Simulated scan of single mutants.
Amino acid sequence: MRLLVVEDETRAAALPRRGLVEEGFAVDIGSDGVDAVWQAGEVAYYVIVLDLMLPGIDGFEVRRRLRADGRWAPVLMLTARGEIADRIRGLNVGADDYLPKPFSFGELVARLRLRVRLLMRRGAVARPAVLEVGGLRLDLAARTASRDETPLDLSSKEFALLEYLVRHPGEVLTRTVIMEYVWDFASDATSNVVDQYVTYLRRKIDKSFGVPQVEMVRGVGYRLRADTGQQRLG
C-alpha cells in the first residue's frame, strides 16, 4: 500500500518513513504543501500523513485543495499543534484523523491501518479486508497470507506484490504499473527488480505447491490466474 508523508523537516520525515517501509508500506515524501498537492494528483495514495505547519501553503489548505480536486484519500494530520481548535478546524476541512506530536510510532501505524480498513469498507463497492483468489488468502489487517490454509512466509515487498496481483486477478499488469504500487518515488528500483520479486514470490506461492498461478506475459508483465483448476507444475 502506498502512502504519502508530507513533512518539511528531513529528519522528522525520515524516521517514520523507515519504520513504515519496514511495516510493508511504500512511502513517498513531500516537503511542502505545493509538492503534496501535486503528488496526490499524480498517485492514488491509500492514506496521506499531512503535517499542519508546512512552507508555502499549510496542511489545512492542502487538504482543502485535495478535496476540491476530487482526491479522497484519507488524511491523517500530524502536527505539534494539539489545541482543540486546530483539531476541529482540521476535521472541518476534511481530515480523517489527527495525531499531535510527539507521537508513538506504534500508534501511527495502528491509526494508518484503521484508515485503510475503513477505506476498504467505504464507497459504492466494498473493498474487503480479506482477499481470496484461487486458493490464495490475504488478510490485509493482520498482514498474513496463506495458500489452501497453509501459511506463507512473505517479506513486506512480497506481500505488497502479491496483494496487488490478487486485487487484479486475470488482468495483465505491466512492470511499470506494479512498480508504481509496490515501490515509491525514492526507490531506485527498475523493471528488473519486479522480475526478481516475482521470482521470489513464485517460489513461495507456486513452486512450493506445484501450482502455476503467476504467469509472465512476454513483453508486457505478469498476470495472476484467477482459477488454477486441476493444472499442476511438473
Results as ranks from 00 to 15, higher is better:
residue 169 P to C: 03
residue 176 T to L: 14
residue 76 L to H: 02
residue 153 D to I: 05
residue 54 L to H: 09
residue 165 L to M: 05
residue 144 T to V: 13
residue 203 R to W: 10
residue 55 P to I: 02
residue 90 G to T: 09
residue 216 M to G: 08
residue 201 L to S: 08
residue 211 V to Y: 01
residue 205 I to Y: 00
residue 100 P to C: 03
residue 181 Y to M: 14
residue 180 E to V: 01
residue 119 L to M: 12
residue 7 E to V: 06
residue 183 W to K: 05
residue 101 K to W: 03
residue 166 V to K: 07
residue 86 D to V: 07
residue 83 E to M: 12
residue 84 I to R: 10
residue 125 V to P: 09
residue 208 S to V: 12
residue 20 L to D: 01
residue 41 G to Q: 00
residue 177 V to R: 15
residue 114 L to M: 13
residue 163 E to D: 11
residue 194 V to S: 07
residue 192 N to V: 15
residue 12 A to F: 06
residue 191 S to W: 06
residue 15 L to K: 04
residue 202 R to N: 01
residue 172 V to W: 00
residue 149 E to P: 10
residue 118 L to N: 11
residue 101 K to H: 05
residue 230 Q to C: 02
residue 38 W to L: 15
residue 173 L to M: 15
residue 157 K to V: 15
residue 215 E to Y: 05
residue 83 E to F: 12
residue 187 S to R: 03
residue 89 R to Q: 13
residue 169 P to R: 09
residue 162 L to M: 10
residue 40 A to M: 05
residue 105 F to T: 05
residue 167 R to P: 11
residue 43 V to A: 06
residue 20 L to T: 06
residue 18 R to C: 06
residue 5 V to I: 12
residue 106 G to W: 12
residue 137 R to W: 06
residue 201 L to W: 07
residue 214 V to E: 11
residue 56 G to F: 02
residue 18 R to E: 12
residue 122 R to Y: 05
residue 106 G to F: 12
residue 153 D to F: 01
residue 224 L to D: 07
residue 150 T to E: 12
residue 12 A to M: 13
residue 107 E to S: 04
residue 34 V to D: 11
residue 103 F to S: 02
residue 88 I to Y: 07
residue 25 F to E: 03
residue 75 V to D: 00
residue 133 V to H: 04
residue 131 L to Y: 10
residue 21 V to S: 04
residue 148 D to W: 13
residue 181 Y to Q: 15
residue 161 L to I: 12
residue 46 Y to T: 14
residue 59 G to I: 00
residue 145 A to Y: 00
residue 75 V to Q: 00
residue 215 E to P: 02
residue 69 D to F: 08
residue 67 R to H: 10
residue 119 L to I: 00
residue 4 L to A: 04
residue 158 E to N: 09
residue 32 D to P: 14
residue 120 M to E: 13
residue 70 G to Q: 06
residue 226 A to N: 11
